[in-house]
């Protein structure tokens, strides 16, 4: 790189038709400093990813150890790898029921959120109507509601409807955050579809529902994917409300995990194994949608 600097000085020298004296008078003698681009990026990423993965690794590490090994020896990897912790979980129905519960309400919530958000997002992206802006803003404010504020009123509301400890209760409660989010994301994708497509379809004699399902939805398929991903994500990770609204029959896996552990004393191995098992669904989902994540974020709408 240093050779580049000297050569560029030569370039500015006598060869140029602008007299060198004039250039000096203006002070245009300093060539741009040629910098070697800093390739510290990989270093930053390595440190950051290590930071992200270490605690997870530690959990995985513990999940393959016996309790004796966890508490008595300190080792960076299991000395006597065991599957006991996982066997405990897979032989106890209350564990895998927790999984089924979590998945059930998460999927229900995702389906409900997307189903109601689709027409609403279409309305916001295509039409003006009385109070549209206020309505949109009000929807978004719900994303700002602290879950802790809603925990108790939700409990009373769903008790009144006899929905406590059902999957539907959790699914509906999570709509509070996910519906505004889904409307927001979908509206962004829909606004990117030219309105001429709608008009052409109507001229071709499509009815609204048929147009929407046959033509419009395929066009914003990736948007639906992104919205579904975020609904899934927030519903899967939220626990305060999910735990408040369930007692046994619909209890999420993550809640069962803490309860079981506190009941059985400090069974660290099982706790770790249960933790690992709750990470896996999320990891799988990310892997399948990895190409859409950047796209969804690119819209700047989360």
């Amino acid at each position: 790189m240093s050779t580049g600097v000297t050569k560029s000085i030569n370039l500015n020298g006598p060869a140029g038709t602008l007299p060198a004296s004039a250039a000096k008078a203006h002070g245009f003698v300093a060539p741009p400093k040629v910098r070697k681009p800093l390739h510290l990026g990989w270093l930053v990423m390595t440190i950051y990813l290590t930071f992200l993965l270490l605690p997870i690794y530690w959990l995985v590490n513990m999940s393959f150890k016996t309790n004796v090994e966890i508490t008595n020896t300190f080792s960076l990897w299991p000395n006597n790898p065991t599957l006991r912790n996982y066997t405990v979980i897979f032989t106890d129905p209350s564990w895998y029921n927790g999984y089924i519960n979590s998945i059930t309400y998460v999927v229900m919530n995702t389906v409900i959120s997307i189903a109601v958000a689709l027409p609403a997002a279409y309305a916001f992206s295509r039409y003006r109507f009385l109070g549209d802006k206020h309505l949109f803003f009000w929807l978004l404010t719900n994303r700002m509601a602290p879950p802790a504020v809603f925990a108790l009123p939700f409990f009373q509301l769903y008790s009144a409807f006899g929905l406590i400890d059902t999957h539907l209760a959790v699914a509906l409660a999570h709509c509070l955050f996910n519906v505004p989010l889904a409307v927001w994301i979908l509206e962004g994708f829909m606004s990117g579809v030219p309105r001429e497509i709608d008009e052409t379809a109507y001229i071709d004699g499509y009815s609204f529902p048929r147009f929407f399902v046959k033509i419009f939805m395929p066009l914003i398929a990736s948007g639906i994917g992104v919205a579904a991903f975020f609904c899934f994500m927030f519903s899967w990770v939220e626990l305060l409300i999910a735990r408040t609204l369930t007692t046994t029959a619909a209890k999420p896996i993550a809640a069962i995990m803490t309860r079981t552990v506190s009941a059985s004393g400090l069974d660290w191995g099982v706790l770790a194994a249960a933790g690992v098992l709750t990470i896996i669904p999320g990891a799988l989902v990310i892997w399948f949608v990895r190409n859409y994540i950047a796209k969804g974020f690119a819209l700047g709408r989360v």
Partner: peptide, 13 residues
């Protein structure tokens, strides 16, 4: 007359 083939943009003016 100066070979700039391997020079970066910023050195070429």
């Amino acid at each position: 007359g100066v070979d700039v083939t391997s020079m970066p943009t910023e050195a070429r003016n």
